[in-house]
Amino acid sequence: MPRPEIRQKLASAGLIVLFFVGWEVFCVVSGMSDLILPRPSQVFVTLVQRLPVLWPHIVQTLVTTMIGFILGVALGILLGALIGVSKTAYDTVYPLLIGFSSIPKVAVVPIFVLWFGSGTVPAVLTALAICFFPIVVNIATGLATTEPELEDVLKALGASKFDILWNVGLPRTMPFFFASLKVAITYAFVGTVLAETVASNRGIGNVMMSASSNFNVPLLFAGLFILAALGVALYVAFSLIEARVTGWATRRNDLAAAA
């Protein structure tokens, strides 16, 4: 019998395979028109055939997402640190932030397009706008939850606010921060594709839009597969970084045995 973690991974992989096989079988058995739901094998073929044409669009979407994400993270850290450190800033800024974050971001895209024209800029801004909020919240929470006793110990040593922030606040925030990065990168991705769908002539979002208007349904699904793959890849990348940086927050037995 394989070890539990391997069994777990086999089960996950098996479910994914089963999903595609089930889909294929369903299409064949039901005789579904490929204008409505193409077979996954069809989609893969389209994907491979069209990859040279799709590649610049993939790069476009990826680069746009990363720029929006990086800007969003920078803004998020800045705002989160400000809010987390000062109770006054927290009380002052929070209502506005909540108001801003509750606006559906689809509604903001036309405004960005009006200001900056269609293309990369509104997509970057949409990605930024949609992804910075979870970072703000998580950084602020991490900073605000420092144990009061430890703060007393350090203050009695003559530590400044910055000393406490640097030695305790920020490291404590790291698990929250990386958890929020995983959410934020996914959000940024959604923002980019959203803006590309509405107003752009490049990117996967745009490809899917034109595929939809041409009834090129396999290409439409190929776009979907690319988005899923990119999303998973980004998520995995940040999970790996997270495990590296904040392994202490997930106290596992294998770590204990290794030490």
Binding site: E147, V153, W248
Partner: peptide
Amino acid sequence: KALRIGMAFQNPTMLPW
């Protein structure tokens, strides 16, 4: 600032990282 002070509470508050 006048005197070096050390403090300890019931909660050991070791930093987990």
